[in-house]
Write a protein that binds this DNA or RNA. Sequence first.
DNA 1: CAGGATCCAAGGGGATACTG
DNA 2: CAGTATCCCCTTGGATCCTG
Lengths: 137, 137
Amino acid sequence: MIPKDEDDLLTRSRALCDAMENEDDWLKREVLTHAGNRWAFGVIHALKEGGRLRHAELRRRLGGVTQRMLTRTLRQLERDGLILRQDYEEVPPRVDYELTRLGEEFLLKIIPMWLWIFEHAEDFRQAREAYSTTASE
Amino acid sequence: MIPKDEDDLLTRSRALCDAMENEDDWLKREVLTHAGNRWAFGVIHALKEGGRLRHAELRRRLGGVTQRMLTRTLRQLERDGLILRQDYEEVPPRVDYELTRLGEEFLLKIIPMWLWIFEHAEDFRQAREAYSTTASE
DNA sequence: CAGGATCCAAGGGGATACTG
DNA sequence: CAGTATCCCCTTGGATCCTG
């Protein structure tokens, strides 16, 4: 189905594979980790929905994240230009985060992938089960 | 632009975020790592283009991967049902790998993300540079 | 040829305690 | 409140050597 779009995608991804060999490693390592990062997606999504959010508010929305991991995730996202950190330099401290345009685009790019993965969660479970049984015999 | 599609995406991703909280961790950890994995993408792409490929042929196509990492990547992809491993049980050993339907779909889902990242490589570089300068002052 | 065994460095992720 | 510091285990990724 949809052979035209698919071919187009593959053609472009072929060029992409060539480019990967020449690219520096940091792009794949630093930026791409966000895609597979457990918290990065939640942070970006929360900022898209909530606008400017503070550290504590983000923690509440994500549920289960420690300060350390939230801080680290935020730092990485900031470094890569996906979010903006604003420190009001008040006492008590007030800092909030907002999504950049780059961050918004990134969110829109990774949502389909996440959706697809969750839609196929059952397939993955079955594949894993089949693998365990064949591996044992 | 395209507010309708974007809203739709966000609505579905909101449900996704809720689902994530209930989901087991393995889905995020095990499956999602493939998306950001440097070699997983190359393997899947090579199999999409080359059909059934053997270990050595894959190594040649990927360039730079060690046997160990290639083997590990292949095992993981096999476990998650994205590729099929066939061992002909000959001497000398002959093993080849092919993409499953699930693997093909996965490739089509992650290509857009990789393309987008490479298209914005310059943005990321600039963001990183800006971050370093503001962080130092 | 395919890949296991071993050793290593770096990072992810979490728990807990402390601070300006 | 928004972090930092410390300690922990696990995985990733690579190098090197070995085997059926």
